[in-house]
Amino acid sequence: MKISIIYLFLLLLVGLTGCELDNFEPPKSTFEGRLVYQGEPLLIQSANVAVANNSDFPVFLELWQKAYNNRSSIRIPIKQDGTFSSLLFDGDYKLIVPNGQGPFLWKRTAANTPDSLDIKIQGSKTMDIEVMPYYMLRNPKISNNARKITGTVSLEKVITDAANGKTVERVSLYVNKTQFVDAGNSLNKADLAGADIKDLANVTLTTGELPALVPSQGYVFARIGLKITGVEDMIYTPVQKITL
């Protein structure tokens, strides 16, 4: 009996002390910034992140640390306001935008793989990443009229050449109870197909009447999104709080 208690205590002791030599310093350097076009942030779909599922983000960047032979990417999700932030070890990294990510063009190499950007992390770093979006959404105005939400926006085609330019698939106005408002999270919406848009500079959408909100609240959030033909990720205007 005595022996087993002693053993138990010994085990407990081992468990409590652990091995100090194995412990690494945690990463401490913050790498943060925004996706921008000429200094203006690019707004996208909100991330609905599942635990342990790191390719689950609508748009993400990849960082590759150069120091090691066995390489595996670090994925950095972009938030709906266009910002990102990641805790990293100091070192030299390469940043890429993987294929098919984001409503923008990313430079490509001669071998048609995504071009990379050298990033040196030495302490925290803030950096805006300049990208070339297909379109920009300008002058969004969203208003409420008898529980019908109306939005107007002007679409500016940024990439105009025939090879890379894309047409508009649709413009949508989304309304939700929370600030997470996009194609996947909406209470009410209005769609306008690209073919029905007469003037890109002046697009107007109006939703149907909002249903009663349960529990009731006197405001909603809204934003306008643009779906580009053949591009998965949409571009959004800033989220606006609308008082009903």
């Binding site: 609905n48 390719s55 032979n69 390489r71 595996s72 098919g100 996947g184 999270n185 998965e232």
Partner: peptide
């Protein structure tokens, strides 16, 4: 609480970095 989205990248599953290494 969420709507499923099957992205174009889902058509063929990911070959992990370890395999490519």
């Amino acid at each position: 609480t969420q709507s499923h989205v099957f992205r174009l990248g889902n058509y063929y599953s990911r070959i992990t970095d370890a395999i490519i290494n």
